[in-house]
Nucleic acid binder design. Structure first.
Lengths: 181, 181
DNA sequence: CCCGCATCTTGTCGGTGACAATTTATGCTG
DNA sequence: CAGCATAAATTGTCACCGACAAGATGCGGG
C-alpha cells in the first residue's frame, strides 16, 4: 500500500505533507507541483512518478482527508452534537484536506479509494443520528450534514460576521443545538 | 455593439459572460484569461486592460454574484423558508458566480464594491428572519445561513447520496423545514 | 480637421504541467 | 557476491499561461 523509501526516503509522504502546507498557505488554486518538488528538495518531475499528475496528487489528499474525517467522526461518540462539532473541528484543523475534498473539479472523485473513504466518512457522520427519534432519517441526516458543512465552509471562507465570535467550536455548538429546539 | 473591428463594443461584458460559461464548464481553477480572450475573439492581452489581472476579473464576477443574490433573496418575500429556497436556487442556477463568491483566495474580497454587494446580500438574507420569534437572532441567522449554504455547497459538489433526489429545490425545502420542528 | 486617450495588439519573460529519454540506486536472483 | 531487472529520480523539452511593456488603432471632443 505504501511505497518504501528509496532515494529520498519517502518522497510520496513528503510531497503530500508539502502539498497540505502549501494549500494552507495559499489555497489549492495556487498549488504548483514544481514548488512541492522544490520544497522536498527533488527535481521538478519527481512528483509525476508518484502521482501521475496534479489531479492524482489531490486525489491522494482527498483520500487522506476522508479517512481522517471518518476516524475523527467515529471517535466523537454517538451524540449528534458532538459528531457535528467534530466535523467542524476537522474542517478548521485540516482546512487543506477539507477544501480539496469538496472541490471535485480538482481531483478524480470517481477513484476507487476516494469512493471507499468517502463512504466510510458518510457512515460515520450518519452514526451520529442513531440516537435521535427518527421520523425522517434521510431528511434529518441531510439537514445535519448541511448545517455543519455550511457552518464550516462559511467559517473557512471568512464569510461570517464578527458576531459569530472567534471560537468556531463554540459557535458551531450553538448553531447545531438549534436543530433540537 | 458588434464584436467586429478593432474596438469590440462591450468587451468587459463579453469577458464576464465567457468567464461564467467557462467556470460552469470546468470550474474556476481551470479558468484561463487567454481562453476567455479567444472566446471573445480578441488578443490574449485584452482582458488585462479591463480587469488588471485574473483576480480582478473574478472580483467582478463576485460583485455581480452578490448583487444578483441580494436581488433574488429580496424578491423571495419575508418567509425564511422561501428565502432559503431562493438561496439554494441561486447557487444551483448561478453556480459559477456562487463558487467564486465563496472562494476568497481567488479574488479581492476587501474590494469596496465586493464589500458593498456582500453587505446587501447579507441584509437580504437576514430579512427572512424578521418574521420568526427571536430568542437568539444572531444564532438563528447563523443556523439558517449555515443550513442553506451547506445544502447548496454539498449539492454543487455532487457530494449528496442519491437519496437526496434530483430536484434541489424540493430537497432544500424539506431540509430547511427541519429548522421549524 | 486633428489630436487626446481609452482600447486593443504584438512581443516577450518567467513559471508551470505534462511527457520522453536517461541515469541512479535498490533489492532480487542465481 | 556478482549481475541484472526495475523502481526512483533526473534532465530536457514543449505548449500554455499570467503579467508586463510598447506600439497600433480609432472614437470623440476641441
Amino acid at each position: 500500500m505504501t511505497t518504501r523509501g528509496y532515494h529520498h526516503g519517502d518522497l510520496r509522504r513528503a510531497l503530500l505533507d508539502a502539498a497540505v502546507q502549501a494549500i494552507e498557505e495559499s489555497g489549492p488554486a495556487a498549488l504548483s507541483l514544481r514548488d512541492l518538488a522544490r520544497r522536498a528538495g527533488v527535481s521538478h518531475a519527481a512528483p509525476a512518478h508518484h502521482f501521475g499528475d496534479k489531479a492524482g496528487l489531490l486525489t491522494a489528499v482527498a483520500v487522506e482527508g476522508y479517512d481522517r474525517l471518518a476516524a475523527d467522526l467515529g471517535g466523537a461518540g454517538d451524540e449528534l452534537l458532538e459528531v457535528g462539532v467534530a466535523y467542524v473541528r476537522f474542517a478548521v484543523d485540516h482546512r487543506a484536506h477539507f477544501e480539496v475534498m469538496f472541490r471535485p473539479d480538482l481531483y478524480r472523485g470517481d477513484d476507487a479509494e476516494v469512493r471507499a473513504a468517502r463512504d466510510r466518512a458518510r457512515a460515520a457522520l450518519r452514526g451520529g443520528l442513531a440516537a435521535l427519534p427518527a421520523t425522517a432519517p434521510d431528511r434529518d441526516a441531510l439537514a445535519a450534514w448541511s448545517i455543519v458543512h455550511g457552518f464550516a465552509t462559511l467559517w473557512l471562507a471568512g464569510a461570517l460576521p464578527p458576531e459569530a465570535g472567534r471560537d468556531p467550536e463554540q459557535a458551531a455548538r450553538a448553531v447545531i443545538r438549534r436543530l433540537f429546539e
